[in-house]
Measured scan of single mutants.
Amino acid sequence: KTYTFRVRIVDEETGEEKEIEVTAKSEEEAKKAAEELKKKYPNLKVELE
């Protein structure tokens, strides 16, 4: 079973919002993916929905 999570990304500089879908095998995995995004884009606000 896989879970699909919507991750909302807000670029703090431009105020631009993007939504991406993360497919993960567990909620834990999705959280890790969101953390990776935060590391990659430090000025983005990442929200897991």
Rank of each mutant, 00 (worst) to 15 (best):
G15Y: 01
A30V: 06
F5A: 02
E36T: 08
A34H: 07
E16G: 03
T14L: 02
T23G: 03
E17N: 04
I20T: 02
E47M: 13
E35P: 00
E17C: 14
E49P: 10
R6M: 13
T23I: 13
E35I: 09
K38E: 05
D11I: 04
V46P: 03
E12G: 06
K32P: 00
K40I: 09
L48V: 12
E27F: 15
G15N: 03
E27N: 05
T2W: 14
K31M: 13
E36Y: 11
E47F: 14
A30Q: 02
Y41Q: 03
V7Q: 00
K31R: 14
E16Q: 07
E29R: 02
V10E: 03
E13T: 11
K45N: 09
A24T: 06
V46K: 02
E35V: 08
V7M: 05
E27W: 15
S26K: 01
K39W: 08
E36I: 08
S26C: 06
I20W: 13
D11W: 04
E16K: 05
L37R: 01
L37C: 06
D11N: 12
E19C: 15
Y3I: 06
K40E: 07
V22C: 13
E13N: 11
T4E: 04
E12R: 09
P42Y: 03
R8W: 15
K45D: 04
E27Q: 09
K1H: 08
A30K: 01
V7T: 00
E35H: 08
V10G: 02
K39P: 02
T2F: 11
E35L: 11
A34T: 12
E17T: 13
E17M: 13
A30Y: 06
P42N: 06
E29Q: 06
F5K: 01
I9A: 03
K18S: 11
E35K: 05
Y41M: 03
G15L: 03
E49A: 12
E36G: 06
K18R: 14
A24M: 05
E19V: 15
K32G: 06
E36N: 08
Y41D: 03
L44F: 14
K40T: 06
R8Q: 07
K1Y: 10
E17R: 06
Y3G: 03
T14S: 07
E12N: 08
R8C: 12
E13L: 12
E35A: 10
Y41S: 02
V10S: 06
T2M: 12
V22R: 01
K1V: 10
L37Q: 02
T2K: 11
V46D: 03
E13Q: 11
K45G: 03
K38C: 11
V46F: 11
K31L: 14
L37S: 01
E21H: 11
K25P: 10
T4A: 05
E47G: 05
I20A: 01
K31G: 06
S26V: 01
E16M: 07
E21V: 14
A33C: 15
Y41T: 02
K38Q: 14
E47K: 04
E29D: 11
A33S: 06
K31C: 09
E17V: 15
A30P: 00
T23D: 04
K31P: 01
T2Q: 10
E12F: 07
K18C: 15
E17A: 09
A33N: 04
K39E: 06
A34L: 15
E13D: 10
D11A: 01
Y3M: 06
I20V: 09
E28D: 10
R8H: 11
I20Y: 09
L37T: 02
E47L: 13
F5V: 10
Y41I: 03
E19D: 05
R6Y: 13
K45E: 05
R6W: 14
A30I: 08
A34W: 15
E13G: 05
A34E: 07
V10F: 13
D11E: 02
E29T: 04
S26I: 01
P42T: 05
E19G: 04
Y3V: 06
K45P: 03
T14F: 01
E13F: 10
G15S: 02
L44N: 05
K40D: 04
F5Y: 11
R6N: 06
T2I: 12
K18E: 08
E12K: 09
E21F: 15
E13K: 12
E27T: 06
E21A: 07
K25E: 13
K40P: 02
E28V: 10
E21L: 15
S26Q: 00
E29V: 03
T4C: 12
N43C: 07
S26P: 00
E49W: 05
Y3E: 05
F5G: 00
K45F: 11
V7W: 03
K18W: 15
E47W: 14
F5C: 05
P42G: 04
V22L: 12
K45Y: 08
Y3F: 11
E49R: 02
S26E: 02
V10Y: 14
K39S: 08
V46A: 04
V22P: 00
V10D: 01
Y3L: 08
K1M: 08
A30T: 01
G15F: 02
I9V: 10
T2V: 12
E28T: 06
I20S: 01
A24P: 00
L48P: 05
I20L: 07
K1N: 11
T14V: 01
V22Q: 00
D11Q: 01
T4K: 10
V22W: 07
L44V: 07
E17W: 15
A24S: 04
A30D: 00
E16D: 06
K40V: 09
K38T: 07
T4L: 08
E49S: 12
F5H: 01
Y3D: 02
K25F: 14
K45R: 13
E19R: 11
E13Y: 09
E19Q: 10
E27C: 15
A34K: 09
V7L: 10
K1F: 10
R8F: 13
T23V: 13
E28P: 04
R6A: 05
T2L: 13
R8T: 13
E19T: 15
K25I: 12
K18V: 14
K31V: 10
I9H: 01
K31F: 12
E47I: 15
A33E: 06
A33V: 14
K40C: 10
E17H: 08
T23K: 11
L48N: 05
K38F: 12
N43H: 12
K40S: 06
E12Y: 08
K31D: 04
E47C: 10
V46G: 04
K18F: 15
R6S: 06
V22E: 00
E12H: 09
E29C: 11
K32D: 07
R6V: 15
E36S: 07
A24N: 01
K40Q: 10
P42K: 04
A34S: 05
K45I: 13
A33Q: 10
A24V: 12
K39H: 09
D11R: 01
K25H: 13
K1I: 11
E16R: 05
D11L: 04
A24E: 03
N43G: 13
E35W: 09
I20M: 09
L44A: 14
L48W: 15
A34I: 15
T23F: 14
K45C: 07
S26N: 10
V46I: 13
